[in-house]
Amino acid sequence: MEEALPRWKKLLRDNREARRWNLVSLELTLPLLVVGYYYYGAAVPRLAVIAALAAMICEAVAGRLVLRRRTVDDWNAAVVGVWVACMLPAGSPPWLAVVGAAFAILVVKIPFGGTLSAPFIPAAAGFAFLTVCFPARVFAYVPSVLVDPVDYRSLASLLRGGQFVPHVRNISYVLLGQTVGPMGTGSLIVIAAVLLISFLLKGRRTAALASLSFLAAAALLAFAFPRIAGSRLDSVWMELCSGSLAFAAVFLLPDPATLPRRWFTRAGYGAMAGVLAMLLRYLGSYEESACFALLLANAAMPLLIRAKNEIAHLKVALAQKKQREGVA
């Protein structure tokens, strides 16, 4: 029977697995930072480094004081900090990234026991916190320094306004991340490449399946219920390329602490998160909602797994009862 997750055992037994996972995650994030540097300049790596350092300092101090053990050497804090920074605009003040990273570590990770124990994805919660507390700053996107964007509005805000813009049909424009948006999540082609690599890497294959399910579910809803007047395919393109949706699917979703164990449950989890992300886009208050969707999916998954287990137990109990009655 699949159980809802005591992954704390992994942390206590072997930190190497966590470290390996996190270092690979950092390596996979690097191309996004390179693309961001190309478009927005030195602000991108600077913000990423500041966020990573802030997260690591928070984890080092809080880990010692609260958890009474050294937790920072698994590099998870650095990954969380970098991911929070990637979802912010390039012109964000450093304190914004610091606050987001600190929240992710001090509120979402440490109180629940650190890496592999947090019930929510720390980077998603950190960004959600920033969105709720500083919405004006989080969506204050700046245009690229190198490429003149056709439109100074982000794709997500255009979708929210129900506006279709023809330049979205310029695939290279959209896939290469030349639209206005978060500093590290705009290049869909890089994210797709990372997804492909994840399928090739041992240990990340089924995690990548969750990401694929997320994107497939989001694409399906975008196709079925377009927010814009263009063709349905245009709607799919715009939805997948806008904001941090694809980034959340490929990088945030496969968090080992919250990912279910079996491949089919992972696929279901990804699909549920994709549906929630699109629902929040249709009904929610913010133009970027993927992180909120991930938090809802994190909360719902243990409930669904427990419900599934209870039903399975009930079936077994009924079968045993029938057997006893048959014998009697």
Binding site: V107, L283, C291, A299
Partner: peptide, 12 residues
């Protein structure tokens, strides 16, 4: 609190 944060995505 984190659950409430998740639902704030709807209400704002």
């Amino acid at each position: 609190a984190l659950l409430a944060l998740a639902f704030t995505g709807f209400t704002g």
